[in-house]
Design a binder for these strands. Structure first.
Lengths: 232, 232
DNA sequence: TAGATTGTTAATCGATTAACAATC
DNA sequence: TAGATTGTTAATCGATTAACAATC
């Protein structure tokens, strides 16, 4: 158990730590006690030194010749990433993406507890999705304030996202996980994390275009007509 | 219209180009003809030189003193990112995340055309989600082959993802957009893009934990009891 | 012409990788 | 002891930022 100050670490390190965590969780049931950076790196295709640096950044120490105690490592990563004490969160936008996130109960293992959803549509508020109540949007600010909810998730369409962000900020929310495809304008102290699928797609699409330019088609089978009624 | 060779560009550049594109699309209706890197940078909070470098990497040129022609810029970015000719894609896993993606019709503007979904569950296959047919999983490989579909989207739970990836590869799919929280083991020439929400959450959660450590609570209003019946 | 902006080269910064000493 | 592995410092690499010349 370590409760040192949480340091600022490079973003890439922050993204890799959960990968280590996942690998260690797979390793745990095997009964092994310790693991080396070489082992972790081998599984994920990473340089062992990088793994060591990441763990060092997270404030986790091992023992020369032995490696790291798996239990210790899992605990240290969870502590460092803030997964030990759950962040309560409000989700706004009970559309399909919102519903999907409400169903990801595994988020709780990562310290995320979505305690309610909100939607401007009266047809949606009042319902329950994956066991979570959907409340009318106008209650967001007040409830966030009263309940000291510090994390907000935005899954509304782009057009409504800025307004929602402002309601969240007004309610004292400090960090926003934004799935709407736009940059939110919020005060500087608010942490915003954009999950911009369009940007993500852009990078995939460019890579595929480039790959196809280099190797047009690996094999060129006859183009067969496909039953029209089976696809739209 | 530019049809030069598509270059390999830094990943960060690839992620920023769609942001420029979005800003330019907003600018377009105003009737303005040209724009400078300073303008773009100001909107997104980026260094103008970085914007210029990114555009240069995408093979787009401007004119000193004038800037870039907006139309030209939009066209150039779309061309470079491969948004001009649609990539046909198969999506596997018609759960809530899959459904959400099937409903994102704006993906088509980014050159992504999801032409069908697949699911192992016979209760789901046969249905139609957001206008797309859901087919039985066992048809995936053959159909991908016959239709020359090159892009696959995985939205099944982690346990099934590796098997799906293998079916995709067998069907000749060249790029995979993976939403399942695990690293897929695929041949080297396959492009994999992991949309790992857990890793993303980790970084947000750590930042929030750190922020709370530094500024525990901006204001400390009384903790009010919340109607128990309104939340679960 | 003068000034704004691109294009391009150099400097800086940060992250990754390599080298090696400390240690169990 | 010898050897594997951590801890730590140095070297490399790549991306960002700064500087400045070219140009419309």
């Amino acid at each position: 158990m370590m409760t040192d100050k949480l340091k600022t670490v490079p973003e890439p390190t922050l993204k890799r730590l959960p990968l280590y965590h996942r690998f260690l969780k797979e390793l745990q049931p095997t009964g092994r006690e310790s693991v080396s950076c070489t082992d972790i790196g081998a599984d994920l295709g990473l340089d062992p030194t990088q793994v060591r640096k990441d763990l060092e950044a997270a404030g986790i120490t091992g023992r020369p010749r032995i490696g790291y105690t798996i239990l210790n490592l899992i605990d240290g990563i969870e502590e460092f990433l803030g997964w030990k004490k759950a962040n309560e969160a409000f989700l706004v936008g009970a559309g399909s993406m919102g519903s999907a996130l409400l169903g990801y109960h595994k988020f709780e293992d990562c310290g995320l507890r979505i305690i309610a959803a909100f939607d401007a549509d009266p047809l949606k508020s009042g319902k329950t999705i994956h066991g979570k109540h959907v409340l009318p949007l106008e209650k967001l600010t007040e409830l966030a304030q009263r309940m000291h909810v510090l994390l907000g998730i935005i899954t509304v369409p782009a057009a409504g996202a800025q307004a929602v962000a402002e309601m969240m900020v007004a309610g004292g929310i400090r960090a926003i996980w934004n799935f709407a495809p736009l940059r939110l304008r919020v005060p500087e102290h608010i942490i915003v994390h954009n999950e911009d699928l369009y940007c993500s797609l852009a990078s995939l699409s460019q890579k595929l275009a480039r790959e196809l330019q280099e190797n047009p088609l690996r094999s060129v089978p006859a183009v067969t007509a496909v039953p029209a009624d089976i696809l739209n």
